[in-house]
Design a protein around this nucleic acid. Structure first.
Lengths: 251, 251
DNA sequence: GAAACAGTTTATGTATACATTACTCCGTGA
DNA sequence: TCACGGAGTAATGTATACATAAACTGTTTC
Protein backbone atom coordinates (compact mmCIF):
# COMPACT_ATOMS: atom_id res chain seq x y z
CA UNK A 1 0.00 0.00 0.00
CA UNK A 2 2.79 2.32 0.88
CA UNK A 3 4.50 1.40 -2.32
CA UNK A 4 1.35 1.96 -4.32
CA UNK A 5 1.22 5.55 -3.16
CA UNK A 6 4.39 6.37 -5.01
CA UNK A 7 3.62 4.36 -8.11
CA UNK A 8 0.10 5.48 -8.73
CA UNK A 9 0.18 5.91 -12.46
CA UNK A 10 2.90 3.51 -13.40
CA UNK A 11 2.67 2.88 -17.09
CA UNK A 12 2.97 -0.55 -18.58
CA UNK A 13 1.01 -3.57 -19.58
CA UNK A 14 -1.08 -5.48 -17.06
CA UNK A 15 1.11 -8.55 -16.97
CA UNK A 16 4.24 -6.43 -16.77
CA UNK A 17 2.85 -4.65 -13.74
CA UNK A 18 1.93 -7.95 -12.13
CA UNK A 19 5.46 -9.19 -12.66
CA UNK A 20 6.93 -6.00 -11.20
CA UNK A 21 4.76 -6.30 -8.13
CA UNK A 22 5.81 -9.92 -7.74
CA UNK A 23 9.49 -8.97 -7.74
CA UNK A 24 8.88 -6.17 -5.23
CA UNK A 25 7.01 -8.54 -2.97
CA UNK A 26 9.75 -11.13 -3.18
CA UNK A 27 12.32 -8.49 -2.27
CA UNK A 28 10.15 -7.25 0.60
CA UNK A 29 9.62 -10.77 1.89
CA UNK A 30 13.33 -11.45 1.73
CA UNK A 31 12.87 -14.33 -0.69
CA UNK A 32 15.55 -12.71 -2.81
CA UNK A 33 18.53 -11.51 -0.85
CA UNK A 34 20.79 -8.63 -1.92
CA UNK A 35 23.39 -9.73 -4.43
CA UNK A 36 21.41 -12.80 -5.33
CA UNK A 37 20.44 -13.51 -8.90
CA UNK A 38 16.85 -12.81 -9.87
CA UNK A 39 15.73 -15.72 -11.99
CA UNK A 40 13.21 -15.06 -14.73
CA UNK A 41 11.62 -18.44 -14.21
CA UNK A 42 11.08 -17.78 -10.52
CA UNK A 43 9.19 -14.59 -11.34
CA UNK A 44 7.23 -16.40 -14.03
CA UNK A 45 6.06 -19.02 -11.55
CA UNK A 46 5.35 -16.47 -8.86
CA UNK A 47 3.52 -13.90 -10.99
CA UNK A 48 1.79 -16.15 -13.48
CA UNK A 49 2.90 -13.92 -16.33
CA UNK A 50 5.00 -15.32 -19.14
CA UNK A 51 8.66 -14.61 -19.75
CA UNK A 52 8.16 -11.68 -22.11
CA UNK A 53 6.41 -9.34 -19.67
CA UNK A 54 8.67 -10.63 -16.88
CA UNK A 55 11.68 -9.56 -18.88
CA UNK A 56 10.11 -6.15 -19.40
CA UNK A 57 9.48 -5.85 -15.68
CA UNK A 58 13.07 -6.77 -14.83
CA UNK A 59 14.37 -4.21 -17.31
CA UNK A 60 12.18 -1.53 -15.76
CA UNK A 61 13.23 -2.42 -12.24
CA UNK A 62 16.89 -2.45 -13.22
CA UNK A 63 16.39 0.94 -14.74
CA UNK A 64 14.79 2.10 -11.54
CA UNK A 65 17.90 1.04 -9.68
CA UNK A 66 16.37 -1.81 -7.73
CA UNK A 67 18.21 -4.47 -9.71
CA UNK A 68 21.71 -4.59 -11.09
CA UNK A 69 22.40 -5.99 -14.55
CA UNK A 70 24.82 -8.92 -14.56
CA UNK A 71 27.40 -8.67 -17.36
CA UNK A 72 26.83 -12.22 -18.50
CA UNK A 73 23.08 -11.71 -18.54
CA UNK A 74 20.23 -11.43 -16.12
CA UNK A 75 19.89 -9.28 -13.03
CA UNK A 76 20.81 -9.36 -9.36
CA UNK A 77 19.15 -7.72 -6.36
CA UNK A 78 21.02 -4.61 -5.26
CA UNK A 79 22.19 -3.70 -1.82
CA UNK A 80 22.90 -0.20 -0.65
CA UNK A 81 25.46 1.33 1.65
CA UNK A 82 24.66 4.12 4.07
CA UNK A 83 26.79 6.46 2.03
CA UNK A 84 24.83 5.71 -1.11
CA UNK A 85 21.64 6.51 0.74
CA UNK A 86 23.08 9.83 1.90
CA UNK A 87 24.21 10.65 -1.63
CA UNK A 88 20.76 9.88 -2.94
CA UNK A 89 19.14 12.15 -0.37
CA UNK A 90 21.48 14.99 -1.27
CA UNK A 91 20.88 14.39 -4.95
CA UNK A 92 17.18 14.57 -4.46
CA UNK A 93 17.54 17.76 -2.44
CA UNK A 94 19.61 19.34 -5.19
CA UNK A 95 17.05 18.52 -7.85
CA UNK A 96 14.16 19.70 -5.73
CA UNK A 97 16.14 22.82 -4.93
CA UNK A 98 16.34 23.57 -8.63
CA UNK A 99 12.62 22.92 -8.86
CA UNK A 100 11.96 25.38 -6.04
CA UNK A 101 14.06 27.96 -7.86
CA UNK A 102 12.18 27.45 -11.10
CA UNK A 103 8.87 27.63 -9.28
CA UNK A 104 9.87 30.94 -7.72
CA UNK A 105 11.45 32.50 -10.81
CA UNK A 106 8.78 31.48 -13.25
CA UNK A 107 6.02 32.44 -10.89
CA UNK A 108 3.84 29.57 -9.75
CA UNK A 109 0.16 30.14 -10.49
CA UNK A 110 -2.21 31.22 -7.74
CA UNK A 111 -4.01 27.89 -7.99
CA UNK A 112 -0.80 25.93 -7.43
CA UNK A 113 0.15 28.11 -4.50
CA UNK A 114 -3.27 27.59 -2.96
CA UNK A 115 -2.89 23.83 -3.35
CA UNK A 116 0.49 23.90 -1.68
CA UNK A 117 -0.87 26.00 1.15
CA UNK A 118 -3.66 23.50 1.67
CA UNK A 119 -1.19 20.65 1.84
CA UNK A 120 0.87 22.52 4.41
CA UNK A 121 -2.20 23.07 6.56
CA UNK A 122 -3.05 19.39 6.44
CA UNK A 123 0.55 18.55 7.28
CA UNK A 124 0.36 20.78 10.34
CA UNK A 125 -2.60 18.82 11.61
CA UNK A 126 -0.91 15.48 11.00
CA UNK A 127 2.30 16.57 12.70
CA UNK A 128 0.26 17.65 15.71
CA UNK A 129 -1.46 14.30 15.79
CA UNK A 130 1.89 12.53 15.56
CA UNK A 131 2.98 14.11 18.82
CA UNK A 132 0.37 11.93 20.52
CA UNK A 133 0.38 8.67 18.62
CA UNK A 134 2.25 7.22 15.66
CA UNK A 135 -0.78 5.99 13.78
CA UNK A 136 -0.97 8.98 11.51
CA UNK A 137 2.49 8.42 10.13
CA UNK A 138 1.29 6.94 6.86
CA UNK A 139 -0.69 10.13 6.39
CA UNK A 140 2.39 12.20 7.02
CA UNK A 141 4.34 10.27 4.41
CA UNK A 142 1.57 10.72 1.86
CA UNK A 143 1.11 14.43 2.50
CA UNK A 144 4.82 15.11 2.58
CA UNK A 145 5.17 13.33 -0.74
CA UNK A 146 2.36 15.41 -2.15
CA UNK A 147 4.00 18.67 -1.08
CA UNK A 148 7.28 17.72 -2.69
CA UNK A 149 5.46 16.65 -5.83
CA UNK A 150 3.64 19.96 -5.90
CA UNK A 151 6.94 21.81 -5.89
CA UNK A 152 8.26 19.63 -8.68
CA UNK A 153 5.13 20.39 -10.67
CA UNK A 154 5.27 24.12 -9.90
CA UNK A 155 8.69 24.25 -11.55
CA UNK A 156 6.74 23.90 -14.78
CA UNK A 157 9.48 21.90 -16.43
CA UNK A 158 8.67 18.46 -17.76
CA UNK A 159 12.36 17.69 -18.05
CA UNK A 160 13.10 18.47 -14.42
CA UNK A 161 9.94 16.86 -13.12
CA UNK A 162 10.81 13.65 -14.88
CA UNK A 163 14.30 13.63 -13.46
CA UNK A 164 13.00 14.24 -9.95
CA UNK A 165 10.59 11.38 -10.36
CA UNK A 166 13.51 9.18 -11.25
CA UNK A 167 15.56 10.34 -8.31
CA UNK A 168 12.62 9.58 -6.06
CA UNK A 169 12.18 6.17 -7.55
CA UNK A 170 15.57 5.28 -6.20
CA UNK A 171 14.38 2.95 -3.49
CA UNK A 172 16.75 4.49 -1.00
CA UNK A 173 15.87 8.10 -1.71
CA UNK A 174 14.56 8.49 1.81
CA UNK A 175 14.27 5.14 3.51
CA UNK A 176 13.99 6.62 6.96
CA UNK A 177 10.27 6.89 6.53
CA UNK A 178 9.44 3.98 8.76
CA UNK A 179 12.01 4.64 11.43
CA UNK A 180 11.40 8.34 11.65
CA UNK A 181 8.30 7.96 13.76
CA UNK A 182 9.87 5.74 16.33
CA UNK A 183 11.66 8.12 18.63
CA UNK A 184 10.60 11.41 20.13
CA UNK A 185 13.71 12.95 18.63
CA UNK A 186 12.50 12.00 15.20
CA UNK A 187 9.12 13.49 15.85
CA UNK A 188 10.86 16.69 16.81
CA UNK A 189 12.69 16.66 13.50
CA UNK A 190 9.35 16.49 11.73
CA UNK A 191 8.50 19.82 13.34
CA UNK A 192 11.69 21.28 11.91
CA UNK A 193 10.87 19.75 8.56
CA UNK A 194 7.46 21.34 8.56
CA UNK A 195 9.08 24.68 9.39
CA UNK A 196 11.33 24.18 6.36
CA UNK A 197 8.35 23.44 4.19
CA UNK A 198 6.77 26.73 5.17
CA UNK A 199 9.97 28.67 4.52
CA UNK A 200 10.34 27.13 1.07
CA UNK A 201 6.74 27.94 0.30
CA UNK A 202 7.19 31.54 1.42
CA UNK A 203 10.27 31.95 -0.73
CA UNK A 204 8.46 30.57 -3.75
CA UNK A 205 5.41 32.77 -3.32
CA UNK A 206 7.68 35.81 -2.86
CA UNK A 207 9.55 34.84 -6.03
CA UNK A 208 12.89 34.54 -4.27
CA UNK A 209 14.47 31.84 -6.41
CA UNK A 210 17.91 31.65 -4.87
CA UNK A 211 16.51 31.57 -1.36
CA UNK A 212 13.97 28.91 -2.25
CA UNK A 213 16.71 26.74 -3.70
CA UNK A 214 19.07 27.01 -0.75
CA UNK A 215 16.24 26.40 1.72
CA UNK A 216 15.23 23.26 -0.12
CA UNK A 217 18.77 21.98 -0.07
CA UNK A 218 19.05 22.72 3.62
CA UNK A 219 15.84 20.79 4.07
CA UNK A 220 17.35 17.75 2.41
CA UNK A 221 20.37 18.06 4.65
CA UNK A 222 18.06 17.61 7.64
CA UNK A 223 16.79 14.40 6.11
CA UNK A 224 20.35 13.25 5.55
CA UNK A 225 21.31 14.01 9.13
CA UNK A 226 18.26 12.22 10.40
CA UNK A 227 19.13 9.14 8.40
CA UNK A 228 22.79 9.29 9.35
CA UNK A 229 21.73 9.35 12.99
CA UNK A 230 19.51 6.33 12.49
CA UNK A 231 22.32 4.53 10.73
CA UNK A 232 24.77 5.27 13.51
CA UNK A 233 22.39 4.23 16.22
CA UNK A 234 21.89 0.92 14.51
CA UNK A 235 18.34 1.50 13.39
CA UNK A 236 19.53 1.18 9.82
CA UNK A 237 22.03 -1.42 8.76
CA UNK A 238 25.33 -0.60 7.11
CA UNK A 239 24.05 -2.58 4.20
CA UNK A 240 20.35 -2.05 4.25
CA UNK A 241 18.52 -5.04 2.83
CA UNK A 242 16.49 -4.29 -0.25
CA UNK A 243 13.41 -5.43 1.60
CA UNK A 244 13.30 -2.43 3.87
CA UNK A 245 13.92 0.01 1.08
CA UNK A 246 10.70 -0.23 -0.81
CA UNK A 247 9.19 2.28 1.59
CA UNK A 248 8.95 5.79 0.28
CA UNK A 249 9.50 9.39 1.09
CA UNK A 250 9.75 11.17 4.35
CA UNK A 251 10.94 14.54 5.58
CA UNK B 1 30.22 7.83 -34.88
CA UNK B 2 29.61 10.87 -32.78
CA UNK B 3 26.84 9.00 -31.05
CA UNK B 4 29.10 6.03 -30.42
CA UNK B 5 31.48 8.22 -28.44
CA UNK B 6 28.90 8.81 -25.78
CA UNK B 7 27.50 5.32 -25.69
CA UNK B 8 30.73 3.37 -25.56
CA UNK B 9 29.78 0.70 -23.09
CA UNK B 10 26.08 0.51 -23.64
CA UNK B 11 24.86 -2.67 -22.11
CA UNK B 12 22.42 -4.95 -23.81
CA UNK B 13 22.16 -7.84 -26.14
CA UNK B 14 23.58 -7.69 -29.65
CA UNK B 15 20.22 -7.65 -31.41
CA UNK B 16 18.86 -5.08 -28.98
CA UNK B 17 21.78 -2.79 -29.77
CA UNK B 18 21.26 -3.28 -33.49
CA UNK B 19 17.62 -2.33 -33.09
CA UNK B 20 18.52 0.76 -31.06
CA UNK B 21 20.97 1.89 -33.68
CA UNK B 22 18.37 1.37 -36.37
CA UNK B 23 15.91 3.62 -34.57
CA UNK B 24 18.54 6.29 -34.04
CA UNK B 25 19.45 6.17 -37.71
CA UNK B 26 15.84 6.44 -38.76
CA UNK B 27 15.40 9.47 -36.51
CA UNK B 28 18.60 11.03 -37.83
CA UNK B 29 17.56 10.41 -41.43
CA UNK B 30 14.17 11.94 -40.79
CA UNK B 31 12.36 8.75 -41.72
CA UNK B 32 10.45 9.11 -38.49
CA UNK B 33 9.22 12.61 -37.82
CA UNK B 34 8.60 14.04 -34.35
CA UNK B 35 5.22 13.06 -32.98
CA UNK B 36 4.96 10.17 -35.40
CA UNK B 37 4.37 6.65 -34.18
CA UNK B 38 7.37 4.33 -34.15
CA UNK B 39 6.15 1.03 -35.50
CA UNK B 40 7.74 -2.12 -34.16
CA UNK B 41 7.42 -3.83 -37.50
CA UNK B 42 9.24 -1.02 -39.27
CA UNK B 43 12.18 -1.42 -36.91
CA UNK B 44 12.07 -5.17 -37.32
CA UNK B 45 12.34 -4.84 -41.10
CA UNK B 46 15.01 -2.19 -40.90
CA UNK B 47 17.21 -3.82 -38.27
CA UNK B 48 16.72 -7.47 -39.07
CA UNK B 49 16.18 -8.24 -35.39
CA UNK B 50 12.97 -9.85 -34.24
CA UNK B 51 10.22 -8.17 -32.28
CA UNK B 52 11.46 -9.15 -28.83
CA UNK B 53 14.78 -7.28 -28.94
CA UNK B 54 13.11 -4.46 -30.85
CA UNK B 55 10.65 -4.05 -28.01
CA UNK B 56 13.54 -3.96 -25.56
CA UNK B 57 15.27 -1.31 -27.65
CA UNK B 58 12.14 0.85 -27.78
CA UNK B 59 11.72 0.57 -24.02
CA UNK B 60 15.31 1.66 -23.50
CA UNK B 61 14.99 4.58 -25.89
CA UNK B 62 11.76 5.69 -24.28
CA UNK B 63 13.49 5.54 -20.95
CA UNK B 64 16.30 7.62 -22.37
CA UNK B 65 13.76 10.24 -23.35
CA UNK B 66 14.07 9.87 -27.10
CA UNK B 67 10.65 8.31 -27.45
CA UNK B 68 7.38 9.01 -25.73
CA UNK B 69 5.12 6.18 -24.60
CA UNK B 70 1.65 6.31 -26.10
CA UNK B 71 -1.04 5.57 -23.50
CA UNK B 72 -2.79 3.02 -25.69
CA UNK B 73 0.49 1.28 -26.45
CA UNK B 74 3.59 1.80 -28.49
CA UNK B 75 5.85 4.81 -28.72
CA UNK B 76 6.11 8.07 -30.62
CA UNK B 77 9.14 10.14 -31.59
CA UNK B 78 9.53 13.11 -29.30
CA UNK B 79 10.02 16.70 -30.27
CA UNK B 80 11.63 19.30 -28.08
CA UNK B 81 11.03 22.97 -27.53
CA UNK B 82 13.82 25.45 -27.05
CA UNK B 83 12.75 25.91 -23.48
CA UNK B 84 13.02 22.21 -22.77
CA UNK B 85 16.53 22.23 -24.16
CA UNK B 86 17.45 25.13 -21.89
CA UNK B 87 15.96 23.33 -18.90
CA UNK B 88 17.95 20.24 -19.72
CA UNK B 89 21.17 22.21 -19.96
CA UNK B 90 20.54 23.82 -16.59
CA UNK B 91 19.62 20.47 -15.09
CA UNK B 92 22.82 18.97 -16.32
CA UNK B 93 24.79 21.92 -14.96
CA UNK B 94 23.18 21.51 -11.57
CA UNK B 95 24.02 17.83 -11.39
CA UNK B 96 27.58 18.37 -12.55
CA UNK B 97 27.86 21.20 -10.07
CA UNK B 98 27.02 18.78 -7.30
CA UNK B 99 29.60 16.39 -8.74
CA UNK B 100 32.23 19.12 -8.70
CA UNK B 101 31.38 19.84 -5.07
CA UNK B 102 31.67 16.18 -4.12
CA UNK B 103 34.95 15.90 -6.01
CA UNK B 104 36.34 18.86 -4.10
CA UNK B 105 35.01 17.96 -0.67
CA UNK B 106 35.90 14.30 -0.81
CA UNK B 107 39.30 14.99 -2.25
CA UNK B 108 39.86 13.62 -5.72
CA UNK B 109 42.89 11.35 -5.94
CA UNK B 110 46.13 12.61 -7.42
CA UNK B 111 45.74 10.21 -10.32
CA UNK B 112 42.31 11.56 -11.19
CA UNK B 113 43.55 15.14 -10.96
CA UNK B 114 46.44 14.31 -13.26
CA UNK B 115 44.06 12.78 -15.78
CA UNK B 116 41.87 15.86 -15.72
CA UNK B 117 44.88 18.11 -16.14
CA UNK B 118 45.95 16.08 -19.16
CA UNK B 119 42.51 16.41 -20.71
CA UNK B 120 42.60 20.16 -20.19
CA UNK B 121 45.97 20.40 -21.93
CA UNK B 122 44.66 18.47 -24.88
CA UNK B 123 41.58 20.67 -24.96
CA UNK B 124 43.82 23.75 -25.11
CA UNK B 125 45.49 22.41 -28.21
CA UNK B 126 42.21 21.57 -29.89
CA UNK B 127 40.72 24.96 -29.11
CA UNK B 128 43.77 26.60 -30.64
CA UNK B 129 43.39 24.47 -33.73
CA UNK B 130 39.73 25.39 -33.95
CA UNK B 131 40.64 29.05 -34.34
CA UNK B 132 42.05 28.14 -37.76
CA UNK B 133 39.75 25.46 -39.10
CA UNK B 134 36.66 23.63 -37.93
CA UNK B 135 37.89 20.15 -38.68
CA UNK B 136 38.99 19.44 -35.15
CA UNK B 137 35.53 19.98 -33.75
CA UNK B 138 34.78 16.29 -33.34
CA UNK B 139 37.91 16.11 -31.22
CA UNK B 140 36.72 18.99 -29.11
CA UNK B 141 33.38 17.31 -28.48
CA UNK B 142 35.09 14.08 -27.46
CA UNK B 143 37.60 15.74 -25.14
CA UNK B 144 35.02 18.01 -23.60
CA UNK B 145 32.84 15.02 -22.92
CA UNK B 146 35.78 13.25 -21.34
CA UNK B 147 36.49 16.18 -19.00
CA UNK B 148 32.90 16.31 -17.84
CA UNK B 149 32.88 12.55 -17.36
CA UNK B 150 36.06 12.79 -15.32
CA UNK B 151 34.39 15.25 -12.98
CA UNK B 152 31.38 12.98 -12.63
CA UNK B 153 33.72 10.11 -11.80
CA UNK B 154 35.78 12.20 -9.37
CA UNK B 155 32.65 12.79 -7.31
CA UNK B 156 33.10 9.17 -6.27
CA UNK B 157 29.37 8.59 -6.03
CA UNK B 158 27.83 5.85 -8.12
CA UNK B 159 24.38 7.28 -7.46
CA UNK B 160 25.25 10.73 -8.76
CA UNK B 161 27.32 9.45 -11.66
CA UNK B 162 24.43 7.34 -12.82
CA UNK B 163 22.03 10.26 -12.65
CA UNK B 164 24.41 12.48 -14.60
CA UNK B 165 24.73 9.81 -17.22
CA UNK B 166 20.98 9.83 -17.55
CA UNK B 167 20.79 13.59 -17.78
CA UNK B 168 23.44 13.48 -20.49
CA UNK B 169 21.60 10.82 -22.34
CA UNK B 170 18.79 13.28 -22.81
CA UNK B 171 19.30 13.83 -26.49
CA UNK B 172 18.92 17.55 -26.12
CA UNK B 173 21.32 17.96 -23.21
CA UNK B 174 23.59 20.09 -25.36
CA UNK B 175 22.53 19.94 -28.95
CA UNK B 176 24.53 22.98 -29.97
CA UNK B 177 27.56 20.83 -30.55
CA UNK B 178 27.40 20.99 -34.28
CA UNK B 179 26.39 24.60 -34.62
CA UNK B 180 28.88 25.90 -32.13
CA UNK B 181 31.77 25.70 -34.55
CA UNK B 182 30.07 27.64 -37.28
CA UNK B 183 30.56 31.23 -36.31
CA UNK B 184 33.56 33.06 -34.97
CA UNK B 185 31.43 34.15 -32.04
CA UNK B 186 30.88 30.53 -31.09
CA UNK B 187 34.57 29.80 -31.30
CA UNK B 188 35.14 32.66 -28.92
CA UNK B 189 32.70 31.08 -26.48
CA UNK B 190 34.78 27.91 -26.55
CA UNK B 191 37.67 29.97 -25.22
CA UNK B 192 35.48 31.09 -22.36
CA UNK B 193 34.36 27.52 -21.80
CA UNK B 194 37.92 26.34 -21.58
CA UNK B 195 38.64 29.10 -19.06
CA UNK B 196 35.70 27.79 -17.02
CA UNK B 197 37.06 24.29 -17.19
CA UNK B 198 40.34 25.44 -15.71
CA UNK B 199 38.61 27.36 -12.93
CA UNK B 200 36.51 24.35 -11.99
CA UNK B 201 39.58 22.17 -11.97
CA UNK B 202 41.46 24.62 -9.76
CA UNK B 203 38.59 24.78 -7.29
CA UNK B 204 38.43 21.00 -7.11
CA UNK B 205 42.15 20.56 -6.58
CA UNK B 206 42.06 23.25 -3.89
CA UNK B 207 39.15 21.47 -2.24
CA UNK B 208 36.84 24.45 -2.51
CA UNK B 209 33.54 22.63 -2.84
CA UNK B 210 31.14 25.54 -2.89
CA UNK B 211 33.23 27.44 -5.39
CA UNK B 212 33.59 24.41 -7.64
CA UNK B 213 29.84 23.94 -7.65
CA UNK B 214 28.95 27.52 -8.46
CA UNK B 215 31.60 27.68 -11.19
CA UNK B 216 30.22 24.57 -12.80
CA UNK B 217 26.73 25.98 -12.77
CA UNK B 218 27.97 29.21 -14.27
CA UNK B 219 29.65 27.13 -16.93
CA UNK B 220 26.37 25.51 -17.84
CA UNK B 221 24.76 28.93 -18.02
CA UNK B 222 27.24 29.81 -20.77
CA UNK B 223 26.11 26.76 -22.70
CA UNK B 224 22.51 27.78 -22.21
CA UNK B 225 23.18 31.31 -23.43
CA UNK B 226 25.03 29.98 -26.42
CA UNK B 227 22.13 27.75 -27.33
CA UNK B 228 19.57 30.47 -26.71
CA UNK B 229 21.49 32.70 -29.08
CA UNK B 230 21.52 30.02 -31.74
CA UNK B 231 17.83 29.48 -31.27
CA UNK B 232 17.07 33.17 -31.59
CA UNK B 233 19.21 33.59 -34.67
CA UNK B 234 17.36 30.78 -36.36
CA UNK B 235 20.19 28.29 -36.31
CA UNK B 236 18.06 26.07 -34.11
CA UNK B 237 14.41 25.55 -34.77
CA UNK B 238 11.70 26.33 -32.28
CA UNK B 239 10.92 22.66 -32.40
CA UNK B 240 14.19 20.99 -33.09
CA UNK B 241 13.70 17.80 -35.05
CA UNK B 242 14.84 14.69 -33.27
CA UNK B 243 17.21 14.06 -36.11
CA UNK B 244 19.59 16.83 -35.14
CA UNK B 245 19.51 15.94 -31.49
CA UNK B 246 21.40 12.69 -31.48
CA UNK B 247 24.60 14.66 -31.32
CA UNK B 248 26.18 14.89 -27.92
CA UNK B 249 27.94 17.16 -25.52
CA UNK B 250 29.56 20.46 -26.10
CA UNK B 251 30.75 23.34 -23.97
C1' DG C 1 44.04 -34.85 -2.67
C1' DA C 2 43.60 -31.20 -5.87
C1' DA C 3 43.01 -29.43 -10.29
C1' DA C 4 41.41 -29.63 -14.88
C1' DC C 5 38.38 -31.13 -18.40
C1' DA C 6 34.12 -32.74 -20.21
C1' DG C 7 29.30 -33.53 -19.97
C1' DT C 8 25.01 -32.04 -18.39
C1' DT C 9 21.85 -28.82 -16.82
C1' DT C 10 19.92 -24.47 -16.54
C1' DA C 11 19.78 -19.86 -17.69
C1' DT C 12 19.08 -16.11 -20.90
C1' DG C 13 18.83 -14.41 -25.92
C1' DT C 14 16.02 -14.81 -29.83
C1' DA C 15 12.27 -15.80 -32.92
C1' DT C 16 7.61 -16.52 -34.03
C1' DA C 17 2.75 -17.77 -33.48
C1' DC C 18 -1.48 -16.36 -31.31
C1' DA C 19 -4.84 -13.12 -28.88
C1' DT C 20 -6.64 -8.88 -28.11
C1' DT C 21 -7.33 -4.23 -28.61
C1' DA C 22 -7.48 0.13 -30.95
C1' DC C 23 -7.83 2.66 -35.03
C1' DT C 24 -9.55 3.42 -39.61
C1' DC C 25 -12.47 3.21 -43.36
C1' DC C 26 -16.58 2.39 -45.53
C1' DG C 27 -21.42 2.30 -45.60
C1' DT C 28 -25.92 3.58 -44.18
C1' DG C 29 -29.17 6.47 -42.19
C1' DA C 30 -31.04 10.87 -40.79
C1' DT D 1 -23.72 16.64 -45.82
C1' DC D 2 -22.77 15.03 -41.43
C1' DA D 3 -22.96 11.67 -37.88
C1' DC D 4 -23.09 7.19 -36.12
C1' DG D 5 -22.08 2.35 -36.37
C1' DG D 6 -19.93 -1.80 -37.75
C1' DA D 7 -16.52 -4.47 -39.89
C1' DG D 8 -11.89 -5.05 -41.21
C1' DT D 9 -7.16 -4.27 -40.63
C1' DA D 10 -3.11 -3.44 -38.27
C1' DA D 11 -1.01 -2.58 -34.27
C1' DT D 12 0.69 -4.10 -29.65
C1' DG D 13 0.34 -7.58 -25.61
C1' DT D 14 1.27 -12.24 -24.56
C1' DA D 15 2.88 -16.90 -24.67
C1' DT D 16 5.94 -20.41 -25.99
C1' DA D 17 9.38 -22.96 -28.64
C1' DC D 18 14.15 -23.07 -29.95
C1' DA D 19 19.26 -21.76 -29.85
C1' DT D 20 23.12 -20.65 -27.44
C1' DA D 21 26.04 -19.76 -23.74
C1' DA D 22 27.33 -20.06 -19.01
C1' DA D 23 27.65 -22.46 -14.73
C1' DC D 24 27.89 -26.55 -12.13
C1' DT D 25 29.04 -31.17 -11.18
C1' DG D 26 31.18 -35.33 -11.72
C1' DT D 27 35.03 -37.85 -13.14
C1' DT D 28 39.60 -38.52 -14.36
C1' DT D 29 44.36 -37.62 -14.18
C1' DC D 30 48.52 -35.85 -12.23
Amino acid sequence: MAAAAGTEERGGSPQTIRAQLAVREMLMAGEIRPGERVSELAIVERSGASRTPVRAALMALADEGLLDPIPTGGYAARSFSVREVLDAIELRGTLEGLAARFAAERGASAARLADMRATLTQLDAVVDALQCNGDAFEDYVALNGRFHAQIAAAADSAVLERQIERAQSLPFASPNAFVAAQSAQKRQSLLFAQEHHRCVFDAISQRQGTRAESLMREHSRLAAQSFALSARSGEALAHVPGAALIRLTAI
